[in-house]
Design a protein around this nucleic acid. Structure first.
Lengths: 140, 140
DNA sequence: CTCTTTGCAAAACATTTGCATGCCT
DNA sequence: AGGCATGCAAATGTTTTGCAAAGAG
């Protein structure tokens, strides 16, 4: 079962429908090794759907996000999305500032800090690394 | 030398001027134990400057940020600011999801991970904890 | 056939900018 | 006096929403 089929199953279980545009969006998000903004998703959709409206993209990205099909983060004041089925379990990302590629890793600061922090009830955390990936490093 | 005077000195060194509104903004940011959005700053300014325009607030917050007088972060899609002179050196924040108060701490995941991460050149990182501060925990 | 999806247009929201007036130094 | 600061209005950029038409099951 491909990740895209899984995602479409999830949608159907929630009474939502399978459309060409959603399938193509999922395929774009799956192929991409990193986060994409709504605008970047639209650019990649241009080939197959030159006249797709932004609304559809925003609506579907929110939908995917609500269903847990994609993960999202905020970069430079814009929401970014990427397929979330690839890497299982709790993880964080290294994000290449140049090409946008993300590399997941399992290490989590909370494993170290859990006992060392003041007694606040910590409910969530945000941890991201930024830099240049191997490919972009070489090009410089 | 108070932090506010230091900040105004920095501004003057850059050819900028001391105004009532800037002084009041700095004072609000200094008193607050946490991040404030532009809107929240405006609300707190209402008492002394009921008719101040948002533009001025946005312009001055950006200015303070450029000069390093305030630190900023992005929360729920809005930029937030707080005075940055209190806690010296590299640090991160615990942010109370209820009252917005922030508590700085010196521990940094990079100290642990430096050697354990893949060979990517890491240039920066983002690490923030969210939860309830002691006061807000008790109220629940 | 019914309910969801899409496109269009408009609105909402945070933020920025041009310009003329006003204030600090 | 001269340059920076401010207010106003308008523009910008991202994201959301109402509504009617098109499409999926």
């Amino acid at each position: 079962m491909t990740p895209i089929k899984e995602a479409i199953d999830t949608m159907k279980q929630n009474g939502l429908k399978e459309t060409d545009k959603r399938r193509e969006m999922l395929s774009i998000l799956l192929e991409q090794e990193g986060y994409l903004s709504a605008k970047e998703v639209q650019e990649k959709l241009q080939t197959k759907f030159p006249s797709i409206s932004q609304d559809t993209i925003y609506r579907n990205l929110n939908l995917f996000s609500d269903l847990g099909i994609v993960e999202s983060t905020e970069l430079n004041g814009e929401k970014h999305y990427q397929f979330s089925c690839k890497h299982q379990g709790h993880h964080h990302h290294f994000i290449c500032s140049n090409c946008g590629k993300t590399i997941p890793f399992d290490m989590c600061p909370m494993d170290f800090f859990k006992d060392q922090l003041p007694g606040y009830s910590i409910l969530s955390h945000r941890f991201e690394l930024f830099g240049l990936c191997d490919e972009c490093s070489e090009k410089e």
